[in-house]
Design a protein around this nucleic acid. Structure first.
Lengths: 124, 124
DNA sequence: AAAGTAGGTTCTCTTTCTAAACGGAGGCTT
DNA sequence: AAGCCTCCGTTTAGAAAGAGAACCTACTTT
């Protein structure tokens, strides 16, 4: 009964806790550790830059896309620029930090290409 | 006027939909597209192999760790081996496919190291 | 016998994501 | 100029996933 309470130490271990981890891989995950973020970055490398382009390309919900773009801008991976002021329009382009992600992306691409072949759905 | 309906095309876009994407990066995300999976793989590269080791190292909940390990085994990234039968005990080790992830991991590490410095919490 | 160790599962509560509609600011068409 | 269209989001409600802690199994140690 003695409260040997482990003292949760509030190690919430949410996204943000990773941002200060000792390991650079963990810190990277604090930015790209979800299903969509990296695919947005990939799309940027493929020349996409607008909200509608990402949304159409990925099929991600607008809600989440909005949140991810904000995060990427805050993280300094993307820059939000007005490309039109008459109708206020913005697009998202890679910063230096974002472009520097290329090697990691290539590493993932190579691994996927080699080890995750597209499986045809049981062709008759 | 055949149905101009945008036809949501049931693009559910859950995890599994990425597994058959044309893009190898997307397929890679179908395996490692979350906060923890890649960190488990990293731990494997650092020599860890047991449930308790991962759990202690990452602080991830046992529930999620269990699910991630299952996924990684199903994906062929890890292998689950009994290292003791008297008390049934298992550990997880990288397969060839898993070891081949090294370049991507190094890419992420380099990026994190260069662009995500550990920020001291406003040192006095 | 009681406590410890290793590898989980189960439970409840909170957070996040999905899906779909709505909004606003301006442009295009007729 | 009325009415749709485009682009970039926000809002809302319901579904899914994650967090945190307790519990279980099966042995070993004290």
């Amino acid at each position: 009964m003695q409260n040997t309470k482990m003292e949760p130490s509030k190690a919430a271990n949410r996204w943000d806790d990773l941002a200060t981890d000792w390991c650079p891989v963990a810190r990277a995950m604090s930015v790209i550790g979800d299903r969509w973020t990296l695919l947005i970055v990939r799309d940027c490398f493929l020349g996409k830059s607008r909200f509608e382009q990402f949304q159409t390309s990925l099929g991600v919900t607008r809600h989440v896309l909005s949140a991810r773009l904000k995060r990427l801008v805050e993280a300094g991976v993307l820059e939000r620029n007005a490309y039109s002021s008459k109708p206020p329009r913005y697009d998202y382009v890679l910063t230096h930090k974002g472009r520097d992600f290329a090697p990691a992306l290539v590493g993932l691409k190579d691994w996927g290409k080699k080890h995750l072949p597209v499986r045809k759905p049981a062709a008759v």
